[in-house]
Simulated assay, not measured.
Amino acid sequence: MNSQAGETNSGAAVRGLLLVLVAVVVGVLLLRSVDDPDEVTATETAPPVVPGETLPSATQAPAPTTAAPLADGTVTTTPPTASTIVATTTTAAGVEGFQPRQVSEVSVQVANSTTVRGAAGRVTDRFKALSYITKSPTNYVGTPLDRTRIYHQPGSLLEARVIAEVLKLDPDNDVFPMLQDTAAVQEFETPDILIALGTDLAE
């Protein structure tokens, strides 16, 4: 009887020791998984969105055209004009990030260098319809220009480039600083932009 009791006690002791060892190993593994600084969670949760708050996006969509309700309740949209589109897409070396002034703030004078009668007046009417400030059409005395030139006052380079694009000219090669000597321009009215009309557009 004593030998059987001793065997039973020794077996229980071994099993107890094994349980303690298993518990120690499991505890060490759990501690390492919690304290390991190099372990990174597989997924990241997005920050909560507060009602009424919009998250930032990489790109901004173009602003929609404005809608105005009429008296009868219908809504009409106003598409952007051609001059507005040109003004927002025109860039020049050294002036990236700047925007041209509104066309209603830019004065334009057209001087006809050709013998085509009424050409300056027709181009002037075109810019008046685009809401530019138009000066009196006049003449450019001297040898007729083969290609139209756009001259601009200091600070009006972007506006001159917009006008060049409206006339389908090259903003890089057909735009120049304002003439130092304006004697060739009859009745010069000091516009922001001077269009010296050549035979390419007068006809």
Rank of each mutant, 00 (worst) to 15 (best):
T124M: 09
S107L: 11
V116D: 03
D170W: 09
L167R: 09
V106N: 13
T90W: 08
S104D: 14
I163G: 02
R147A: 10
A111Q: 13
R149V: 09
S113Y: 07
T77E: 14
T190I: 02
A129L: 09
Q186V: 12
G97W: 07
R101D: 14
D181S: 11
P137N: 02
A93K: 14
T84V: 04
P177T: 04
V106Q: 12
A120Y: 12
P69H: 10
V75C: 06
L179G: 00
P100N: 09
T74R: 15
A111P: 06
V185E: 06
Q180H: 01
R149N: 09
Y140F: 14
E189V: 01
P177F: 09
T89G: 04
G73C: 07
A71E: 15
E165D: 08
L70E: 14
Q102R: 14
T124Q: 13
G94F: 07
L70F: 07
G94L: 08
P79S: 05
V110I: 12
S136C: 01
T78W: 02
A129T: 12
A92H: 01
T74A: 11
R147N: 10
T138V: 08
E96N: 13
G94K: 04
V106R: 10
Q109G: 06
T78L: 09
P177S: 07
T89M: 04
V166Q: 09
F176P: 00
I85N: 10
R161S: 10
A87Y: 07
S107W: 11
P137D: 10
I163H: 01
F98I: 06
D170N: 15
G118Q: 11
A82L: 11
T182S: 08
P79M: 06
T88V: 06
L145Q: 09
R147Y: 08
P177M: 06
T115P: 00
T77M: 12
D181Q: 11
T76F: 04
I133R: 13
Y151L: 14
A184F: 02
V162E: 11
L158C: 04
P100F: 05
T84G: 08
T91D: 13
E159T: 05
Y132L: 12
A111T: 10
Q109E: 14
A71P: 00
H152Y: 15
V75D: 10
I85A: 08
D125A: 09
A164F: 04
T190D: 05
P154L: 06
G155S: 07
R149C: 04
T124E: 13
G121M: 03
S104F: 08
I163Q: 00
V75P: 03
V116W: 01
Q109K: 13
T138F: 08
V175E: 03
P69C: 05
T77H: 14
T124K: 13
V75G: 02
K135N: 14
P79N: 04
T77F: 09
T134A: 11
M178F: 03
P144I: 07
E189I: 02
A183V: 03
F176E: 07
V110F: 03
F127K: 12
F98P: 00
A160F: 05
G155D: 04
T78R: 12
N112Q: 05
A71R: 13
R161L: 13
T115N: 12
F188E: 00
H152P: 03
V110T: 02
S156K: 15
V141Q: 15
Q102D: 15
A129D: 15
T143Q: 15
Y132A: 11
T76G: 05
V95D: 10
V108C: 02
G94A: 05
